[in-house]
Design a protein around this nucleic acid. Sequence first.
DNA 1: TGAAATCAATGTTAATTAAGGTTAATGACG
DNA 2: CGTCATTAACCTTAATTAACATTGATTTCA
Lengths: 227, 227
Amino acid sequence: MAATKVLYVEDEPFLGQIVKESLESRNFKVVMVVDGAKAIAYFNEHKPDICVLDVMLPGKDGFTIAREIRQVDQDVPIIFVTARNQTEDVVKGFTSGGNDYIRKPFSMEELIVRVNNLLKSGPRKEKVQETIMIGKYEFLPLLYELRLEKTSRKLSHRESTLLTVLNENKNQIILRKDILMKLWGDDSFFNSRNLDVYITKLRDYLKEDTSVSVITIKGIGYQFTVV
Amino acid sequence: MAATKVLYVEDEPFLGQIVKESLESRNFKVVMVVDGAKAIAYFNEHKPDICVLDVMLPGKDGFTIAREIRQVDQDVPIIFVTARNQTEDVVKGFTSGGNDYIRKPFSMEELIVRVNNLLKSGPRKEKVQETIMIGKYEFLPLLYELRLEKTSRKLSHRESTLLTVLNENKNQIILRKDILMKLWGDDSFFNSRNLDVYITKLRDYLKEDTSVSVITIKGIGYQFTVV
DNA sequence: TGAAATCAATGTTAATTAAGGTTAATGACG
DNA sequence: CGTCATTAACCTTAATTAACATTGATTTCA
């Protein structure tokens, strides 16, 4: 089987080199480019199997690049790399069509897992959305931000991931076990208690809208309900 | 509505029988077969709504069966049952076209939740009614909430499920046994006493409206009457 | 026949236990 | 330091089990 081709757009040479080498050590064929123009050019010529796009770039940002890629290819998996504090102003009212995102700093393991997940499961339907409405709230998973009318709250990474998982399964029963596996990769006792803590936090953050609730189903899991 | 048809492939007769009966108690129509050849034959003839495939089987393993099913049906949900706890297996499961997997040993609850989730997310869209009027009460099964005028009470999972079952059969005689099977999956003595407790609770919650009542039919069951 | 006794089914309330909720303390890490 | 994740400690609640009460059908027997 031919090596999987990765298009990697990153303007920081130091980080870029590490990531590139790390992916190459796992038998990916990586082309790293530093800006949007080169990215599009490379994409059209070589049709990579997956794209990893840094969001913060000189010139075209990663979202713009993604949108341009989506015009010619609906299916190729796209992963965004975001730095939490930089993107405030950039991320406004766009629809870019990414499939996953990863926050800087990230471990190589994490990136590899995400890359493999997207490659494995074939054409994906779920795309990252910048703005998700949860009742009266706006949730911006890329920014780890939860807005309600004029106010806005920063979520931590865990909080944000948990809310994402809940939202992806809203109005269904979600097994506690599955949440634990998604967030911590195992379902030991301590992680389990940890989850309780985050559930409490999210309930608190979401308490202003009573049509949104996290219902406990004891011994089974939760049901994230948005009426 | 016709019962959901489940194709269940399992070579261990003891486990198989338990799972089969448990699913049947939840109103699934289950056909259990013990090997791949029979599975494919049954599939083609009866077009089940969902497949539960044990991975470890004599002859064709579950993955192979899944691939063969996928050649004729892209959409039918497939759940793997695996004893092995290997990431490799999980990956193999998804690449064989599975939609979910469950590890042995598993609880019936877990299986039921996974089956229902897959059925719900599929093409069939049975909308849960958001507000059900029960006499003067409003029952919101999604929110596990029972309202009366300005007041509102949160129900637990069991309470809510029981009320749903009663309501679905209102003004008819419901067999005690049927309720027990729906809520607990079996009708042992202890669950039976448990049901009595929940009946008492619901009667208490519903006592403000005398036109709503849970009538006992001794030795048979109940009749949930809403005039 | 019909009151009393019997007995199983169900009602009610309380005790138990296990899961989860909450809040604070600790640890890790930039 | 300050933030976040984790661990710990303590509290609350759901679900179950148990204990005792009531009901009503059925049997017994004068």
